[in-house]
Simulated assay, not measured.
Amino acid sequence: MGLSFEDMEVGSVIECGEHTFTREEIVEFAEKFDPQPFHVDDAAAAASPFGGMIASGWHTCSVMMGLLVRNAFKDSTSMGSPGIDEIRWLKPVRVGDTIRMRNAVLDKRVSASKPDRGIVETQWEGINQHGETVITVRSKGLFGLRNPGAPA
């Protein structure tokens, strides 16, 4: 068994890997899910306030979710999430940017109604190759307990 509730320590940070955004993938994602001109058209993007093509914020979130699941939560006791509390797109993600993702544990508690699982509050951060934080996400995740009912 991989990561479980007991392994998630408040204050710990999990490095989740990195991803480089290509023009082709930015356009492909945007054409399907967020076809705003600055995501799909070079000329429109150049004339936009961004001055060039950028990735959709939803694309960035999706990439970060993939990094989290594949690299940090693989074989874990994750039971999904009751939701995202906050997303902040702080800087645009541009063609060729490499985003490194990390996930910090902010708080955790055993569920009062379902004591076989715990709720873990985290903050994801996406940091570009220049060391700039481009996105933050605050969320809660549900994780199974390795030993339900054992002292914390």
Rank of each mutant, 00 (worst) to 15 (best):
V27H: 01
V134A: 04
A112Y: 09
G83F: 02
R23G: 14
I54M: 01
T133M: 03
L90A: 12
G11T: 08
D116A: 04
P35R: 00
S76N: 13
T133P: 00
H19E: 07
D42C: 11
F33D: 06
S48H: 11
D75N: 14
A30C: 08
I87D: 07
A150P: 07
R23W: 14
S76F: 13
E6P: 12
F21L: 01
Q36N: 12
V10R: 08
G57W: 15
E31G: 12
S62M: 08
K114M: 13
H39T: 10
R109I: 04
P37K: 06
G52M: 05
M65G: 06
G126W: 01
S81Q: 07
I26N: 00
I84Y: 08
L67C: 13
Q36G: 10
V95I: 09
G118K: 11
M79R: 15
L3I: 12
A150F: 07
I127S: 00
G149C: 07
P92D: 01
W58M: 13
V120H: 06
A104T: 15
V13D: 01
M64Y: 04
M65S: 11
I14P: 03
D34H: 07
G2W: 02
F21T: 01
G141T: 09
E24V: 11
V27P: 02
G149A: 10
P115H: 06
V13T: 08
D7W: 08
P148D: 06
D7I: 04
G149R: 05
H59V: 13
G2N: 13
G118T: 09
D116G: 06
L142Y: 12
I135R: 07
H130A: 00
P49G: 11
N103H: 14
S81M: 08
S62D: 02
S62R: 03
A152L: 14
V63N: 03
M53V: 14
F5D: 01
P82S: 05
M1V: 13
T122M: 15
E25V: 10
P37V: 08
M65T: 15
S111V: 04
H39P: 10
M8D: 03
Q123M: 12
S56Q: 02
F5S: 00
V13I: 10
V137L: 15
R102W: 07
S76M: 13
F143C: 03
E15D: 10
K108S: 10
F29C: 02
A112L: 11
N71G: 09
V134N: 03
G131C: 03
N103P: 04
D97I: 01
R94I: 04
I84L: 15
C61H: 04
R100V: 01
A45E: 08
E25Q: 14
M53G: 08
T77I: 02
D42H: 05
F38M: 03
K108F: 08
R94P: 05
G149K: 06
L67Y: 09
I127L: 00
V63S: 05
C16Q: 11
A72Y: 15
S111Y: 13
E24N: 09
A72E: 05
T133F: 00
N103M: 13
D107T: 05
K108T: 11
L106S: 06
S139D: 09
T133V: 14
P82I: 05
R94K: 11
G83C: 02
M101Q: 03
G149H: 10
T98I: 09
E86A: 14
I119N: 11
E132G: 02
R23P: 13
F143M: 05
E9M: 14
L106I: 08
